[in-house]
């Protein structure tokens, strides 16, 4: 007679493992509830993945896709514009992540220190609002503000304070390779810092007040309390936020798309915008090439997720997936 496998229950008692069919039947309610989710995930997440195969095909709007092996990848790795986009994606994403996280932490700490609840809540609302604006609107606003002609508010202010002479040409901030990235980071700080503070403020509200009382008894100044109590309490959350967001660094499109232009492709073009141009600037695009670039982007993103998972296990004792 076949020996049945034993399993250990949560209370540590060894019991015989029931047959799969019986286990499913016993939990049929859960399985039934799981079916819609499974179907949804299969259709929405896995079905589109079938398109990955086109990375190995010559696939145009007209005609039958033709298998061409790794030709698209050979072309991609031999294209300077692709490597520029790849390098920019990593640089812009990582810098943006570090800068916005840092500013969110600083703003959270300041908000936490505010005694006047009305001012604190009002400020919180004000800094959250930009997050809800679409990138298209943000792009339009900043193009207007930074316009190099007399209609641009920033150039007007620079003239008013004498930084620019009346006859000097205006600074074209968004078309200058040296200025584009700082402007991009500033716009991201303006738009996303408020939203980023939510998780840090939640952590701050959970800090045991006895720690501050103990610090008071020890004669700590306000800055010392921030440095020795508040910041250490936030460290774990900061690491978590950084790790979780690091996995998403390859997904950068709208924020760049609405702010970049041909003059700054060298510092602004990212993989998603490169794919966009390759696909939609051609009268007859080759979707195979776009898919190949997209697949490479996804692979890099996958590798980053694995690295983040490993880093998460090391720092937090548990993974993110």
């Amino acid at each position: 007679m076949k020996k049945q496998k034993q399993v250990i229950t949560s209370t540590g008692v060894p019991v015989r493992e029931k047959p799969l069919g019986l286990r499913i039947w016993n939990n049929r309610g859960y399985y039934l509830m799981f079916i819609p989710v499974l179907v949804f995930v299969l259709i929405m997440n896995y079905w589109p993945m079938l398109g990955i195969r086109y990375a190995f095909y010559d696939f145009k709007p007209v005609g039958t896709p033709k298998f061409i092996g790794l030709d698209h990848f050979v072309k991609m790795f031999g294209t300077a514009a692709f490597w520029t986009a790849f390098k920019n994606t990593l640089q812009l994403s990582v810098m943006k992540l570090l800068i916005t996280t840092f500013t969110a932490v600083v703003v959270s700490v300041f908000l936490n220190e505010m005694g006047n609840l009305f001012v604190k809540k009002s400020l919180q609302t004000l800094i959250y609002l930009p997050h809800f604006m679409s990138w298209a609107v943000v792009g339009g606003i900043f193009y207007l503000l930074l316009d190099p002609t007399s209609t641009g508010m920033v150039n007007g202010m620079l003239r008013d304070i004498g930084f620019l002479g009346e006859s000097d040409p205006g600074i074209y901030f968004l078309a200058d390779s040296t200025l584009w990235r700082p402007i991009f980071y500033l716009i991201n700080i303006w738009k996303e810092t408020g939203w980023g503070t939510i998780i840090f403020l939640a952590t701050l509200s959970g800090i045991n007040p006895e720690l501050y009382e103990a610090a008071d008894i020890d004669g700590a100044t306000r800055m010392q309390k921030i440095w020795y109590v508040t910041v250490p309490a936030l460290t774990n959350t900061i690491v978590t936020v950084l790790i979780l967001n690091l996995a998403k660094v390859m997904n950068m499109f709208e924020s760049v798309f609405v702010l970049y232009n041909p003059a700054v492709y060298d510092v602004s073009d990212v993989i998603s915008t490169y794919i966009y141009r390759q696909t939609f600037m051609n009268a007859m695009p080759n979707y195979g090439y776009s898919t190949a670039v997209g697949l490479f982007k996804a692979l890099v993103g996958g590798v980053l997720v694995v690295i983040c998972n490993y880093a998460s296990k090391k720092t937090r004792g548990r993974g993110i997936v």
Binding site: T79, A175, P262, Q278, M281, N282, A283, P285, N286
Partner: peptide, 17 residues
Amino acid sequence: YTENAGTIYDAKIAVVT
């Protein structure tokens, strides 16, 4: 040309700017 019109245009724009 059909395959690379976008790439060629990008290169031209780079020169022009």
